[in-house]
Design a protein around this nucleic acid. Structure first.
Lengths: 126, 126
DNA sequence: TGTCATTGAATGATGCGTCATGTAATGTCC
DNA sequence: GGACATTACATGACGCATCATTCAATGACA
């Protein structure tokens, strides 16, 4: 590979990095200050809201989230402690747990989604 | 803003997130296993190599790196302990410190840069 | 020149994500 | 149906980034 092509690759990577960090930092800061939850918490709520109809087990979450199983377990812990989510037993497989939005969780999601979308529009490269 | 436009924004964000996480995870994993340094350490070495001619103070690093001043201080700590970098007093301003690549650091950077570029090519969206 | 604000850098407390591991429950195969 | 592997999830240890704070040096200004 030529030196110029390599240089271009590095610049492309730095641009990606910059766009991602700028956006995720802005999201995290605003979601925290306005709604009291971090970005990963919000995005988990968002996934739960999206799949609310089918029902969502921990395992399903790991399939659609970029987070680790372990991280998701702790995120759901925090959301549960805050009352935004609850775990429910799964009749077909007693190892599994359903994760469900509570009233408060659905309400918070509605509010925070506005902030989220607004910041995406402000930060994402057009 | 229309619902569809909002939805598209969210998809754009998830794509950005996915591309960034996939690439940075791959980079971090390979740089660690092949060269024993993390991604942020490497990118700091990379910046130092890039600005080697002018001389690079801590403060200059914070201007070109996406990392925090505090994080950079600790990254340089680790690089220094590993012998890849050294801090040197700054005559014009005794609060400042120059950060310089050592022989070993320059050598490691040469090797690791190959891995870095290779993984960028493999992971970045063409 | 003495006072006060600012700057460059280091550090301690804290939060969070990851890895490795543990523990049930389930599946498989003889 | 009993032994073994596998799956779903939780947890503890660890690393690392961040924030707030601290400290020393410098600048500004009366």
């Amino acid at each position: 590979m030529s030196t110029e092509a390599t240089q271009e690759l590095v610049e492309q990577w730095r641009a990606l990095q910059c766009a991602y960090l700028k956006t995720s930092n802005a999201l995290d800061r605003e979601l925290s200050s306005r709604h009291g939850i971090g970005l990963n918490e919000f995005e988990t709520l968002d996934l739960l809201a999206e799949h609310r109809a089918e029902g969502c087990r921990m395992k399903d979450l790991t399939l659609v989230s970029p987070m680790t199983q372990s991280a998701l377990s702790k995120i759901v812990d925090r959301l549960e402690k805050a009352g935004y989510v609850q775990r429910a037993a799964c009749a077909e497989d007693r190892r599994s747990l359903y994760v469900e939005l509570t009233e408060a969780g659905a309400h918070l999601h509605d509010e925070a989604a506005g902030t989220h979308r607004e910041l995406l529009e402000a930060n994402l490269p057009a």
